[in-house]
Amino acid sequence: MTKESVPTLYEWAGGAEALERLTDAFYRQVKRDDLIGPLFEHMDADHPRYVAMWLGEVFGGHERYTEERGGYPHMLSMHLRKAITEPQRRRWINLLMDAADEVGLPDDPEFRAAFAGYVEWGTRLALHNSRPGAQPVTHAPVPRWGWGVAPPYTP
């Protein structure tokens, strides 16, 4: 397989429709969750769709989140001063991974490792940026997440 024929994570996941199924299932769980539900009690009805757009762009799809929502600066603004806790961050990850299973996102190790890598990185960034007094970088591009590379084996 050539580098040009390797699909993006967005393509491998199933595109926009798969990511919308993921975020719909995820936020249904979030609304019922006693730990992170309160963070989303005033959530816009379109929030799951916006998160699917973000994930789509991050994983190599169209730049819809940037074009329609303002890209990274807008996403950052959604997390400032939320004071997310470590238990909330971990619950967010667990519920998202459960939703990925529920909606049938690919479960091959390579995809799930890349997906989990982004979720771990992104939630830690959100945790840090949500702290009172945080001074994050306010203008940055939307991250582009790929397959990653396992370190070389040296006997």
Rank of each mutant, 00 (worst) to 15 (best):
H42T: 13
G15I: 10
H74E: 04
P73D: 05
A116E: 10
T138P: 08
L19A: 03
D44Q: 13
R89V: 15
T85H: 13
S77Y: 10
G15F: 03
A45E: 05
P152D: 02
H139P: 00
A100Q: 04
Y65N: 06
E4H: 05
Y72C: 05
H62G: 14
L80P: 01
M78D: 00
G146S: 07
P132I: 00
W121L: 13
G14S: 06
V103F: 12
M75C: 09
P152N: 01
D44R: 15
A99W: 06
R49G: 13
G104A: 13
S77D: 15
E86K: 14
D101H: 12
H47Y: 15
R81T: 07
T138N: 11
T23Q: 12
K82E: 00
A126P: 02
A150K: 09
E110H: 12
E57I: 09
D107V: 02
G70W: 08
Y50H: 14
E57L: 07
W145T: 10
P48F: 06
P143C: 04
M97Y: 11
D108I: 08
E120P: 02
P143R: 04
L105Q: 06
V30A: 14
G71R: 04
E41A: 14
G56N: 07
A150W: 00
A114Y: 12
V51L: 15
P38W: 07
L80W: 00
V119W: 00
E110F: 06
R32T: 05
Q135H: 05
D33M: 01
N129T: 07
V6I: 15
T23L: 12
H74N: 09
P143S: 08
V6A: 12
P143Y: 00
